[in-house]
Simulated scan of single mutants.
Amino acid sequence: MTWRMPSETAPHTRTWMAFPSEGPTLGGTDAEREAGYAAWAAVAHAVAAFEPVSMLVDPSELTRARRMLGGGIEIVEAPVDEFWMRDSGPTFVVDPERPGVLGAVDWVFNGWGDHDWAVWQKAAQHGRIVAEAAGAELTPSLLVNEGGGIHVDGEGTVLLTETVQLDPRRNPYADRARVEAEMLRTIGATHAVWLPRGLTRDYGDFGTSGHVDIVATLPSPGVVLLHDQQNPAHPDHAVTRELRAFFETQTDATGRRFTIRDLPAPATVRDADGDTDWSYVNHLVVNGGVIACGFGEEEADATARGILEEVYPGRRVVTVDAREIFARGGGIHCITQQQPAVTA
């Protein structure tokens, strides 16, 4: 049996999310908490305009979730501490030899390397909980990994980052060969492209140490959509040029060289916590659309929408303000997880 992770552009049955619950990620003041709840709810409603949304909700947040989400979003009661579904939830896969069968890879989740501040014991159960709710066959993995740490083209190529899967706080005994063997077993990846690093801010205390889904994605086979920090005053100016030079030397699973499309960063280079990691790459592809991050910059947001419309032809691009999500450590892709459609 060979599982295969479809491209995010393949048809979805639904998108999974987790509703925020009180803790270090949500914020320490009433205003911060309300802003967090509102940001997650806004993304859920935007996705629900294209496809069904199922939301894990901690029992302590049921009343608030019902009020903010309304009747159009399915609520699944479950324990929630961290609420980044891309990372704590399963990675869905299909079996080409068994039409109609949905699988779910349950990675080990340890709070992005067991940071001192992270509270993740409940979130570590999300892979199993979501798989069961979705009626998927569970494929357990001993690899510490997060969905935000991989991107695939659906044809055998997977993007990884040396500082994520080989992070000694995650997988102290792993090497490239072991990780690649597990990617083949779990998601059917036959060819790994190892990015040397991620964005600068991602290496801070509250970062993931280089998740690929804020840096690069594969909108179609043979094409890389790459974050482009154009301001020389920002440390990611050098980083994104290093990554562009890297991708110029790489091939996909078929041996073809990548076509690189640059996706310029917003103009804002600093926020209250330092150098920004604001990125339009961290979008979610949905049925017939794309849910794009917005940063309150009319011109930059519009430019990003235009590029996303070009690389995802025929899809409607909708921008949702993602600043409150990024203030907590990620973007729209980080808080969502697509469930691919399977047909018998």
Rank of each mutant, 00 (worst) to 15 (best):
M1S: 14
M1D: 12
T2H: 11
P6T: 09
E8T: 01
P11W: 06
H12A: 15
T13V: 12
T13P: 11
M17L: 07
M17I: 07
E22S: 09
E22G: 06
G23D: 06
G28N: 12
A31E: 07
E34D: 15
A35Y: 02
G36A: 05
G36I: 04
A38C: 10
A42V: 04
V47R: 00
V47N: 05
A49P: 06
A49Y: 03
F50K: 09
F50H: 13
P52V: 12
V53D: 02
R64E: 11
G70Y: 06
G70A: 13
E74R: 15
F83W: 08
D87Q: 06
G89R: 04
P90S: 05
F92C: 14
D95K: 02
P96L: 11
E97Y: 00
E97S: 06
G103E: 04
G103W: 01
A104N: 05
G113A: 01
D116L: 09
A118V: 14
Q121E: 08
A123I: 10
A123N: 06
A124V: 11
H126W: 00
G127F: 06
R128P: 11
R128Q: 12
A133G: 10
A134H: 04
A136W: 00
L142Y: 13
L143C: 14
H151D: 15
V152M: 03
G154T: 01
T157F: 00
T157I: 03
V158L: 01
L159H: 01
T163R: 07
Q165R: 09
Q165K: 09
Y173A: 14
A174W: 02
E180I: 08
M183H: 04
L184I: 03
L184N: 01
T186W: 01
I187H: 00
I187K: 03
G188E: 03
A192I: 01
P196N: 08
P196M: 10
G198L: 10
G198E: 08
D205L: 11
D213W: 07
I214S: 14
V215A: 13
A216P: 06
L218C: 12
V223S: 11
L225Q: 03
D228V: 02
P235L: 10
T240N: 10
T240R: 02
R241Y: 02
L243D: 13
F246E: 02
F247H: 07
T249C: 12
T254P: 05
R256F: 02
I260V: 15
R261D: 10
L263F: 00
P266G: 07
D275V: 08
D275M: 08
T276L: 04
D277G: 08
W278G: 07
S279L: 08
N282M: 07
V286H: 02
V286M: 03
N287P: 10
I291T: 06
F295G: 08
E298R: 07
E299R: 14
A300D: 00
T303K: 07
G306T: 13
E309Y: 10
Y312V: 11
G314A: 13
G314E: 14
R316I: 09
V317N: 10
T319L: 02
T319Q: 04
A322D: 04
R323P: 00
I332V: 14
H333G: 11
Q337C: 09
Q339A: 08
T343E: 00
